[in-house]
Amino acid sequence: MIEWIESVLGLTIQVGTVYLLASLGEIYAERSGVLNLGLEGIMVMGAALSFIFTLAYGHLAAILISVIAGILMSLILAVMAVYMRLNQTVTGLALTMLGLGLSGFLASPEVRKVILLALNPSLPESLLAIQEAPKLPEIHVPLLSGLPIIGCFFRQNVLVYVSYIAAPLMWFILFKTRPGLSLRSVGENPAAADAMGIDVFRVRCLATMISGGFAGLAGAYLFLGFQPFWQEGLTAGKGFIALSLVILSTWNPLRAILGAYLFGGVEVIQYRLQLFGLGALSPYLLAMLPYLAAIAALVAVSIESVRKRIGVPASLGIPYSREE
């Protein structure tokens, strides 16, 4: 039984980390009032770049490049949605389309080969055509990894450990520090924040860039840390699941941990239940579970009284302008 729990939980953490990393950044963007619907596109770009750069320069460079690319992509959104005050939904979705298309182009066999040779002319022929990259190694934390059940939390790769540290740290910054307060006030009442001397545009721009950086990291994790095989559009909607997870977590980084592992767990359990014969009854119902959870969360927060209680950022999705 313990072995079974460890098997399920260990994989749940691996699946959930994608959602956790992506939603942590998105929480910051939405708390500042910017809805970053470009998450999916940034993630898939992160995955594609981590693939290419791992082959050329190794893991560390690849992860850094993915994060930087995520920040740059979200900067596009920040300029358009924050400074130019364009519709956030439309610009965000445009960013997703851009990411899906561009990543497919960059990582397509012919283009990838050219890029790889430009980056590192000494690469062996075999690496130019291969669609996988070395996976991030598991790091076993001494002592802790030997514990029953919770030991599986400490037999993961480096990006999972990053998520363990990032979630509480981001919660602390958001709720216990002055910059966090500024960020939240910008999302609640930008006019008042502005009057208090907070640069609304700069805060929103920074928060959007943070969300982009984390989305890039989530993409890099998905490829390098979970399933290292490049596939065009390999995020397959995970960015949108992360978006609904942000709502489910009520814009709280700590609750996002629970939500991410819940979604991850549902996905893992789905394939276990099938082997107990439950899949035959209604496989589609099982496959629907994560989305059902997402819809339930969305319905719940759309109810006015719930909105007030859980604290939806009041200015979420509304561009700020001083003239009004």
Binding site: L222, A236, V268, R272, Q274, P283, Y284
Partner: peptide, 18 residues
Amino acid sequence: NWIFSWVAPDAARKAAIA
């Protein structure tokens, strides 16, 4: 173990591990 997709690397991984 069924994954209900022709192309789904992550689902294939979960199904195989199960």
